[in-house]
Write a protein that binds this DNA or RNA. Structure first.
Length: 431
RNA sequence: GCGAGCGUAGUUCAGUUGGUUAGAACGCCAGUUUGUGGCACUGGAGGUCGUGGGUUCAAGUCCCAUCGUUCGCCCCA
């Protein structure tokens, strides 16, 4: 059916009862709730930043040569001539807020979580949208590997808690800007003689962003790279110790991981720890989330030298994974009482009762169509209400109301004035 | 940005080698009980076959374009 105003490409709606889990508003909210709970458990507090930031914040932090900055940002120029960009990720905005609000002055480590929409101008595909919802954490103020382990544990705890158990944690250390530069020299020296065998994309990376050479899936390139030097050999003692200590913490915590010396992330700002969490049960978009340490980033955006580590995950991808895995999820809340009104005289009495029920904290619903009793009963059943309250002109005349338990069909009559109290004491549905 | 597939009722799909009023299931609405759900039965509403153009006596069925979507590449959440 031709829509007059279809939604923009690569976007989607979240609405109740959507067949696709990644569009179901209740499931989305459920994941957010779980994430808030886990974040709270680990001592993280929520931060909310604007949907857009000055463009330079992203170009400087993420890296000019990255795909995101070079071709995937939604950038607009204001009437005043400023360049603003819808956030393609949240680390830079959160750090900007951390600096701007002097959160470093509160002492200790600032542990923040966020839940926000992100925007990237990409080729839309399942699990890859131009606007997507992301959950994440940032821990600022310590270079302690224990913090790396905590962030990784938090991420895994979240996935386990929502019911995804088959997870693959990939881990690497990307060193520092200095050790990486030394490595890149060696890597380029190694690749140079083989360069003609690389794809066009690979050759472009060689010039622009050689670290990403490692990220290829091209079989021939992988074969060549299999004997390439590893970044780990170029790490400083401090970086090596950091990584080994982290591995020790993970091992102690019983967290399985897969060392991947070729794991590199899409942003330039990562240092030391880099990790990615994948679901082997997904297709091309198998990365559920990822993160890493960024010890120079706060300084780079104008704050005091502050180490930090973060993690982010896509809600839609998590939901797609949950649906693919047929994970059980709680159903949306249903009303305790469904008020069925029959007759004109009962109408105002019923509307008043509905109001009283809600005022007493009892989830109550009714049918608004003046429909037959049968239709209203069906609606009560469809709403999964615990009780149907039947109020017709006869009941009003006798000042009573009929109360039917829709679970066991037991029905009885009580004085109208006692309805609220009865439902209060007989409580919400046992779900 | 590249390659490929798909686009028919709210949803999932059928629609034979192009040919009369485009079908099913589920969902929705109503009835089978003069005031009572879940099951069953009956009936009903709902589609200018994504859009535009072309070929043809005739197109949902063929061609082109366009938009959307899906899969792969790329990238990443």
């Amino acid at each position: 059916m031709p829509l007059k105003y279809p939604r923009a490409k690569g976007t989607h709606d979240f609405y109740p009862g959507a067949a696709a889990w990644e569009e179901d508003s209740y499931r989305c909210h459920y994941l957010e709730d779980i994430f808030r709970g886990v974040s709270n458990l680990y001592g993280y507090s929520e931060i909310r930043t604007p949907a857009f930031e000055p463009t330079e914040l992203f170009t400087r932090s993420i890296g000019e040569a990255t795909d995101i900055v070079s071709k995937e940002m939604y950038t607009l120029v204001t009437k005043g001539g400023d360049s603003l960009t819808l956030r393609p990720e949240s680390t830079a905005p959160v750090l900007r807020a951390y600096v701007q609000n002097s959160l470093y002055a509160t002492g200790g480590v600032s542990k923040l979580f966020y839940c926000a929409s992100h925007f990237r101008y990409e080729r839309a595909q399942k699990g890859r949208y131009r606007q997507h919802e992301q959950l994440g954490v940032e821990a600022l103020g310590a270079d302690d590997p224990a913090l790396d382990a905590e962030v990784i544990a938090l991420a895994l705890a979240f996935f386990r808690r929502i019911g995804i158990h088959n997870l693959r944690l990939k881990l690497n250390s990307v060193g520092s800007l200095e050790s990486r530069d030394a490595y890149l020299v060696a890597l380029k020296e190694f690749v140079a003689p083989h360069l003609p065998e690389f794809s066009g994309e690979g050759q472009a990376r060689f010039e622009v962003n050689p670290l990403r050479l490692l990220d290829t899936k091209n079989a021939r390139e992988l074969e060549i790279l299999s004997s390439a030097p590893h970044l780990s050999a170029f790490l400083t003692d401090d970086e090596r110790l950091h990584h080994e200590t982290l591995i020790g913490y993970l091992t102690d915590a019983g967290i399985d991981f897969e060392s991947d010396p070729f794991l590199v992330r899409g942003f330039d700002y990562y240092t030391k720890t880099a990790f990615e969490i994948q679901s082997p049960d997904l297709g091309a978009q198998n990365a559920l989330g990822g993160g890493g340490r960024y010890n120079k980033l706060v300084e780079a955006i104008g704050g005091p030298p502050t180490p930090g580590i973060g993690f982010g995950l896509g809600i839609e991808r998590a939901l797609i994974a949950l649906q693919a895995l047929a994970v059980e999820m709680p159903s949306p809340p249903s009303p305790t009482a469904y008020l069925i009104i029959q007759g004109l005289a009962a109408r105002p009495v019923g509307i008043k009762l509905l109001s009283d029920l809600r005022a007493a904290g009892i989830a109550a619903e009714t049918d608004y169509g003046f429909r037959s009793m049968k239709a209203q009963m069906r609606a009560a059943d469809k709403a999964h209400a615990r009780y149907a309250l039947i109020l017709g002109d006869d009941e009003v005349a006798q000042n009573v109301i009929q109360l039917k338990n829709l679970y066991d069909s037991w029905q009885h009559t009580i004085p109208l004035t006692e309805a609220v109290e009865w439902l209060s004491s007989n409580g919400p549905p046992a779900r």
